[in-house]
């Protein structure tokens, strides 16, 4: 298909500036159940020496004191930024960014609401379904009526 994006992810200027200012960090925007995370690190600082790539884990601080891993990824010098979606986060949740197997805490983030609530999401899903059914019905009925009028 044509219109759904182009190869090559380009983060916004604000995001790059934010990431560069803060070093190893993340932008975490989440409603109930949905979040977008954009993270990275200024290449000139972290990729010195023999560092070819970096394993970073994101863990959610649970209410019982435990931690739950919800994303793990590997960054490299050429691709220090990744965008992806997560779910299961709520406003106010604490998320830690940990460095590879060492578990060194790179950053701590508090989830803030940016995206629609879950009810809104499911409302749109229902709306999309109704819209699709209606579209098929319009075409189907149009075809049936067209055939009967021509015969």
């Amino acid at each position: 298909m044509g219109g759904l994006g182009l190869v090559g992810f380009t983060p916004s200027a604000e995001a790059i500036s934010f990431l560069n200012d803060r070093g190893p960090s993340a932008v975490l925007e989440a409603p109930e159940g949905h979040a977008r995370l954009l993270w990275g690190r200024e290449p000139s600082k972290i990729w010195e020496g023999e560092n070819k790539s970096l394993q970073v884990n994101l863990v959610l601080q649970l209410e019982n004191g435990g931690q739950e891993l919800f994303h793990s990824s590997r960054l490299s010098k050429e691709t220090p930024i990744e965008e992806f979606f997560v779910s299961g986060l709520r406003e106010g949740d604490s998320v830690f960014m940990l460095l590879g197997p060492s578990g060194q805490v790179l950053d701590r983030l508090t989830v803030r609401t940016q995206y629609p609530k879950l009810q809104f999401v499911f409302g749109l899903v229902v709306l999309g379904t109704v819209l699709l059914v209606f579209l098929v019905a319009v075409i189907w009925r149009g075809e049936v009526e067209g055939r009967s009028s021509s015969s």
């Binding site: 759904l4 949905h34 779910s87 299961g88």
Partner: peptide, 26 residues
């Protein structure tokens, strides 16, 4: 182990993108 959210069938953004992409394509 690494990307558990990819197996979440109720991931909201994925559900929304399903219909959004459909209508964009249409």
């Amino acid at each position: 182990a690494q990307r558990p959210m990819l197996l979440d069938v109720l991931m909201p953004v994925a559900l929304l993108s399903l219909f959004n992409n459909m209508f964009f394509g249409l």
